[in-house]
Amino acid sequence: MSAADGLIETPGLRAAQRPGVFPRALGAGGRRALLGLALPVGAALGWELAVRLGLAQGRLLPAPSTLLATLAELARSGDLALHVRATLARVAAGFALGVAAGTLLSVLAGASGLARTVLDPTLQGLRAIPSIAWVPLFILWLGIFETSKVALIAVGVAFPVYLGTLGAILSVDRRIIEVGRSFRLTRLQLARRILLPAVLPQYVVALRAGLGLGWMFVVAAEFMGASEGLGYLLLDGQQLGKPAQIMAAIVVFAVLGKLTDALLVAASAPFLRWEDTAQRAAEG
């Protein structure tokens, strides 16, 4: 128990982020999923009804049926797949780069006090810059095409990953490190057998925060001039006055964001079965 003290996250946060990821008994789980769907589905039905009954115009906020029709049309013409693929590719590349950079820097800063003293103030200063502020510079440096977009996303992803991972490394319980020392583990063995597993739960949280920001920055990146991608779809919808297209893109963002996050959680779940959290106790 005591060994895990530093690793447990606030149960509230967990509970809010986790529903639906772990298979549960169908009865309680199904009921919970239905309850979670009640609000959005109810609101959609209400709005649909309001538009059908003529209580609302539905021009700037189209009825759900119009939205679905727009989505179906985008899917049929192949545009949806094109835009989704473009955006996904950018997020994937930016996320991979950002995670690599954030992880590397946090491991450096976590492994050596000197590296931390040298690196951390600069990184914290860079982190304070609103990432959108990089846009003009990145366009000048890297051009208007993919490279600058991926770079912007990577910057957005790297900082939360750095911050979360370094925090996790520094908060590893001294007492379990002593267990490793008493068995004469080398520095590398200590890192692999104690630090890595101890840090993993918080690392996953850092990755999820990074992924969320990745999705945020892909829109900013696609606003700065793109001919394809969901961000382009948003901009195009605004310029041509097609609110249904804007909302369709927003819905796709919501679905993709949730799906990729769920994927990340599901991929990490086998490594975190040991966790002693309030959430786990409620499930057990």
Binding site: M1, S2, L7, R175, I176, V179, A198, W274, E275
Partner: peptide, 9 residues
């Protein structure tokens, strides 16, 4: 040690 200090994972 005074506490078990088992590795939770």
């Amino acid at each position: 040690f005074q506490e078990p200090r088992l590795l939770a994972w």
